[in-house]
Write a protein that binds this DNA or RNA. Structure first.
Length: 424
DNA sequence: AGTCCACAGGAAGGGCAGGCGA
DNA sequence: TCGCCTGCCCTTCCTGTGGACT
């Protein structure tokens, strides 16, 4: 006898199993979705052309920077040591792309010329990879083919291993250190002092540094000895304007999309939105890629301006959710406290946050941290752009941070749901 | 002018985990 | 196994701050 709401579905590959009516409906809708997806004409031809890891054959509106950097690195081809160089510019202005692009060109030309040139790239914002002195040295040694444990060795030994590995062969090494300001902020500038003096300890090899930073004031705060040797040459990367971003997007879109799928005005809209974000080409590419993905997901035939608007919101939500998911539990508890308080008041003070935070800790069984630590967690959330803070003085009633949420209502709603799920 | 408040934030160090070499 | 090293998270202690109040 058949049970109510359950029936027997027979023999897919000789298996017999029972499924409920509800499950059958879900399976059918999934089947329909896959079918619809298969029947829809593809939108993307080469999606990766819209990702930041893609290196295009040409880079519009950066001819000057490419020429300047090439001129600085050219002495390598005649066995000389090029000057150390510093690249400045806002995010998404092409610093990383161009340094890697010129680096790989240099590597291939030097190979043809019988020169041994190696370009090593490291991003100091890669957490747990290259964000401390030890890890940076270990990572660079690994790039040179020498594995060093994650921890355990004295730092001077890690330096020694790196130097020895470097000096094993006669070669010129171009060391690209991206987000160099993040490294110095965390570990101090001693590491840069050591790196800028690296050639004094090498017999066979030569090393040149390319430092990359978004922070224009970074170099001013360095020790003068490091400043003079690190920035022997400097290149500035100005932000792209709307028209330049359009050129970049048109070129990438022709590689990424099937011809004719982009509605009139899509590229212009992505470029305009990214131009508002300080001319960030990365943002423009993300917008176009996500708009395409949303159209593909809806099985739409064309990418429209509506998709770009949706992409804009999706990127913001995803960014915030990813950051919050990656935070330690205590930081999430502090954020949860701020969200809760902001439902009552638009502006909150540190003291209120700490009082409410203690209640939340008791409720969810977390350890209560000190005010000092919570103050740091609030500062970190501010740094991520999730909250906005401003230090004010209330005269006799002390100094405090005024805290507000810098997010739209839809993001706050999703964030609250996410934090509830994590805590329960 | 001096005092006071409620913090901000720097410095030092403790405790723990992960890992190495002897 | 033990001593040593590093990174990380955290606490404790301390000084600094700036405007209202006395």
């Amino acid at each position: 006898m058949r049970k109510k709401g359950v029936h027997v579905k027979e023999n897919i590959n000789n298996f017999t199993f029972k499924i409920s009516k509800e499950t059958e409906v879900t399976m059918n809708s999934a089947k329909n979705l896959f079918q619809k997806f298969l029947e829809t004409k593809p939108i993307f031809k080469r999606r990766e052309a819209l990702t930041i890891s893609f290196t295009p054959q040409s880079i519009p509106h950066r001819e000057k920077q490419i020429n300047d950097l090439s001129r600085i690195l050219a002495p390598t081809l005649k066995g000389g040591r090029p000057s150390n160089v510093f690249l400045y510019g806002r995010p998404g202005t092409g610093k990383t792309l161009i340094s890697r692009f010129v680096g790989s060109e240099l590597e291939s030309i030097s190979k043809n010329n019988g020169q041994n040139v190696k370009v090593l790239y490291v991003n100091c914002k890669m957490k747990r990879v290259a964000d401390t002195e030890y890890r940076l040295m270990a990572y660079l040694s690994k790039l040179l083919g020498k594995d060093i444990p994650f921890t355990g060795l004295p730092t001077d030994q890690v330096y020694r291993i790196f130097f020895e590995t470097l000096d094993e062969n006669k070669q010129t090494v171009i060391l690209i250190i991206d987000e160099i300001d993040a490294l110095v902020e965390k570990t101090g500038d001693e590491i840069l002092y050591n790196l800028t003096r690296i050639n004094q300890d090498l017999k066979n090899s030569r090393v040149s540094l390319i430092g990359i930073t978004n922070s224009l004031g970074f170099i001013e705060n360095l020790d003068p000895r490091i400043r003079s040797s690190l920035s022997e040459e400097e290149l500035i990367f100005p932000p792209y304007n709307g028209l330049q971003l359009q050129d970049i997007l048109k070129e990438r879109a022709s590689m990424a999309f099937v011809p004719g799928v982009l509605e009139q005005g899509v590229i212009e809209k992505c470029a305009a939105l990214a131009a508002q974000e300080h001319g960030d080409a990365r943002r423009a590419l993300d917008l176009l890629r996500v708009a395409g993905e949303l159209a593909e997901r809806n099985a739409d035939k064309k990418v429209t301006i509506k998709h770009v608007d949706e992409a804009q919101e999706k990127i913001d939500i995803d960014r915030v959710l990813e950051i919050v998911k990656a935070q330690p539990r205590q930081s999430q508890a502090v954020l949860f406290t701020i969200i809760k308080l902001s439902e009552r008041n638009k502006e909150i003070q540190t003291g209120e946050v700490y009082d409410e935070y203690q209640e939340i800790c008791k409720k969810y069984g977390f350890k209560i941290l000190t005010t000092r630590r919570v103050s740091d967690l609030i500062a970190e959330l501010d740094l991520f752009g999730i909250i906005n803070t401003k230090i004010i003085s209330k005269g006799r009633y002390g100094r405090t941070r005024i805290i507000s949420l810098g997010l739209s209502n839809s993001i706050i709603k999703k964030l609250k749901k996410l934090l509830y799920e994590i805590f329960i």
